[in-house]
Amino acid sequence: MNQRQIIEAMEGCRTSSDAAQQADVPELADALSQDAALRKQFERIRQWDGIVGEALHDCPIPEGLCDRLLDALALSDSGSALAKGPFESAARQFPCNETLAEPTPESHPNAGRRFLLRRSLWFAASLSAAALVLVAVALSRLGPQTPELTADFADEIIDWTQTVARSEWRTDFAASELRGAPFDPGVQSRPRRWTRIETRYAAQTVVYDLTVRQNEPTFLFCFVSGRSSLPGNPPVGPFSTTGGFSIGAWQRGDHVYVLAVRGNEARYRKLIQSPVILGNMRIRENLERIGALPIHANPDTPHFAIGAIDQV
């Protein structure tokens, strides 16, 4: 350990523990036992830690904070409960009072039976319709969800990458499974292999492995989804760096792509840095005429790279 490392090790000693006994820095204990000046410096650092730690913890708590927090949680709880209740909308759609009219006296001897039959049929039809609505609502909740916020991915990306680590990789890029999840040409890399995992958005999410160095895993996730609020092109910068991953997400047509790059923003940008990418456009002929470079892998979803927007 050099002098700088010893000082850094001293700074890293927890205020609640005896630094000299910390197993992870035995060299520090040796250095302290041999150097009186170092011991003095260490003592000062500990004094500062005590004072700064105390000062940091010493801040006034706003009056009524606890009550406000509890109110907010109660509000959030009741709001989500209302949103989750399909019964309310079903009941509104099929108000019992309107469908079940009061019986009116009729002169025909079978009138009573026919009314009962009609009433039963009405009742059965109403129940069936309500049940159908409930099933539809339940299925929509249980089925794959459409991503609404890019931040959603940030919370899940760790799970996805862990699932990927347990998956079996394939290298046959001509496989029919990939036709439904083509590699996005906006990502400046070549996939080494691919696999499929299940996410809450799609039972079949294709994962392309773009990892070059072992300690810098890089994945492109692709799944089919309905319209979302995601941008139409790969974002130039990541929206999140959760769990050490820089993450960007976008949607091209029916395909949602999530790029997860282990490392900082610069690594992410490196993979996205490219000329302006223009998605599936009707001006294909014009682009070809001006000499734009076709970069599409799939002729059905053409993409072109051009030097600058004003060339179009």
């Binding site: 700088r4 700074e11 000062r44 500062w48 005590g50 004072i51 700064v52 000062a55 801040c59």
Partner: peptide
């Protein structure tokens, strides 16, 4: 400069705004 550790002040000398 990591080598320089000034003498620690008293707790009441730490100003909240400065912190």
């Amino acid at each position: 400069d990591l080598d320089q550790v000034p003498e620690s002040p008293q707790r009441d000398e730490i100003d909240e705004a400065e912190l």
